[in-house]
């Protein structure tokens, strides 16, 4: 690939057009965006720019329980299973905790704080039709 930037005349290269098409195809789809502080934001993709700053609508924030809460949860799970625990089982390691969530609405996630972007799709829809492939995968 030679030059992926807009040429001085403002003409877009095919690679640029395709990249923009790809981003457009994601619009209004639900993304899960993980930030550097390991929170996750779930919302509908509305807008982005060259720095990958993301605007998400109807966003929920998800946060892993704090270490303290995890320890408490683990202890509680161990205690609960203690009565019926069979020797050798390791319940304490496999207990489940819900991520705490809250509704935030419209948010901007700056590109610099993003560590992961995931696209949510229905399994049923993924099977149908050819999947889009980005220029880098071609």
């Amino acid at each position: 690939m030679e030059d992926t930037r807009t040429s001085p005349e403002g003409v877009q290269t095919p690679a640029q057009t395709e990249a923009a098409d790809y981003l457009r195809s994601l619009l209004n789809k639900n993304l899960r965006v993980t930030t550097t502080d390991s929170r996750m934001f779930w919302g509908a993709f509305k807008c982005t720019d060259p720095e990958s700053n993301l605007v998400l609508q109807h966003t929920y924030e998800y946060r892993h329980p704090s270490m303290q809460k995890q320890a408490e949860g683990s202890a509680a799970a161990a205690a609960a299973s203690g009565a019926t625990a069979t020797p050798g089982s390791s319940v304490a390691q496999t207990f489940k905790m819900d991520m705490t969530s809250r509704y935030l609405g419209l948010v901007v996630v700056p590109g610099e704080h993003i560590v992961k972007i995931e696209l949510e799709e229905f399994a049923s829809q993924m099977k149908r039709g050819p999947q889009y492939r980005s220029p880098t995968e071609l």
Binding site: L23, E118, S134
Partner: peptide, 13 residues
């Protein structure tokens, strides 16, 4: 889609 997204966004003017 982290890398794919960032790469595509980077091509924007």
């Amino acid at each position: 889609i982290t890398r794919k997204f960032a790469a595509a966004a980077a091509t924007l003017a």
